[in-house]
Design a protein around this nucleic acid. Structure first.
Length: 110
DNA sequence: CCCCTGACCCTAG
DNA sequence: TCTAGGGCCAGGG
């Protein structure tokens, strides 16, 4: 397992409850990984101790819906239970209060 | 090796 | 706001 992949997991584990990060945001902090690859990794993280539900599309949409609409429902339930606010059309409000600020987000390398 | 498929994303129109 | 297209790249058939 590559160092950047380990870094993704370490990073996602540090996203606090009540906040989210986009796939691209995570990828930007874990070069040379791309947003697409981060998505693959999150899909594989189901059932682990990694809070995959705190990673969403850059526009706040729940991309898990592509794989399984029910999974998106589960994700929404988790996020709402953590206090994350949604827009009327079912997307996460991508406000600075809810989105992790990468600049202020220090991560120790695995 | 070719082809296709993703929990993506940004730009144009 | 929304769609289409191109870029992206690891895995699997």
């Amino acid at each position: 397992m590559s160092a950047s992949v380990e870094r993704v997991y370490a990073l996602v584990r540090r996203i606090p409850a009540g906040k989210v990060m986009s796939y691209g945001q995570v990828a930007a902090l874990c070069p040379p990984l791309t947003a697409r690859r981060v998505g693959q990794l999150m899909a594989r993280a189901l059932g682990s101790d990694i809070p995959w539900w705190r990673v969403v599309g850059s526009d706040g949409t729940l991309r898990t819906h592509r794989r399984d609409p029910m999974l998106a429902e589960l994700q929404k339930a988790y996020l709402q239970s953590e206090g994350v606010l949604f827009t009327k059309d079912g997307r996460v409000r991508m406000t600075p209060e809810q989105v992790v600020n990468p600049a202020t987000f220090e991560v120790e390398l695995p």
